[in-house]
Design a protein around this nucleic acid. Sequence first.
DNA 1: TGGGGTTAT
DNA 2: ATAACCC
Length: 434
Amino acid sequence: MPAGSSSSRVIVHVDLDCFYAQVEMISNPELKGKPLGVQQKYLVVTCNYEARELGVKKLMNVRDAKEKCPQLVLVNGEDLTRYRETSYKVTELLEEFSPVVERLGFDENFVDLTEMVEKRLQRLPSDDVAALTVSGHVYNNQSINLHDVLHIRLLVGSQIAAEMREAMYNQLGLTGCAGVASNKLLAKLVSGIFKPNQQTVLLPESSQDLIHSLKHVKEMPGIGYKTAKRLEALGISSVHDLQTVSSKILEKELGIPIAQRIQKLSFGEDNSPVTPSGPPQSFSEEDSLKKCSSEVEAKSKIQELLASLLNRVCQDGRKPHTIRLIIRRYSSEKHCSRESRQCSIPSHIIQKLGTGNYDVMTPMVDILMKLFRSMVNVKMPFHLTLLSVCFCNLKSLNTTKKGTIDYYLTPSLSTTSCSGKHSFKMKDIHMEDF
DNA sequence: TGGGGTTAT
DNA sequence: ATAACCC
């Protein structure tokens, strides 16, 4: 690698083991050692390894799961609060290693380790390079060449990955897998090679083996259900098919941007950066229903969803400027498509958010019911199978800077009036803010 | 398939 | 507003 022009990166993908089940076992240690499933409606959405050994699979019907495994213990996982909170603790822990952390769902994170690796190598006496060792598995059992700078960097990446997993276990009691490679695609694919609670590093010479170990293009992250179907229509099913198909044909069928992106993926190439996720862009709560067919039922569900959301938005501190209502209509076969209507939240309501005292429920429910009636003709029979409310377009209240007198004099900025318990606690004053 | 999320069009 | 992707 030419000095100073490091185009090669070191990326880690961290993937928690059966995350919801782990959180449940921490909440209730009596569940440890027993086959455990986490249930949402009639599905077992995830389960621990004891349950997997007895034949339970992710997203299995509760009946099938109980049939396969009568001793299966089930806990309800429809309330995501503890999962979400634990998930952000993991992200925050990883951000302590390097601030560039991208979340993928609640249980996966990417971290760009390139800078950290460079720093460790810079303060490593050159004689000590010979004593460097890998942490965890090496994909394909490939041998490490300590004279190859790419190998050295990935190996240091594997050591950092091991430290991250140690910290997750020691500080949060969570286990997980990690994959270290030169980009996000490869890091993600390699993290799943040894499971659970293990890690694997991919050296560049083995990247073709890794991507060809996929049996179908649908297994490639970034190629979803729709794209896989369109590829199949072109007779493309293996990674090799996708590598060798004419790019002109692919571009004509999928459009230039998707065609070029997925064909690069098929070679194991992925230049997408690790994008720091930061705080969430939206908050939503949803509930699937067997049947909602009256406006009164809908209103009651919407009130439930909204009440939870208001708590969350209050905790966050930022203010949503847009509210959205999402529905799913009953339909015999059609792939469950959703419809939504959104509007901006009137500024006088935004102001009341988080102050706790004023009733913000009533005007918000009124808005949501107007959105509801703009989608559903309530004078005609209807049958909905899902209701969801989403707050988005989140803004920090204003751009008031720390260290200005305004920051400490604006009640909503310098105190947390939301949680009650901390109602009048002043924000800590840090001299370095001035 | 649940109960979430993101970005692109 | 929808459609695609991710878990």
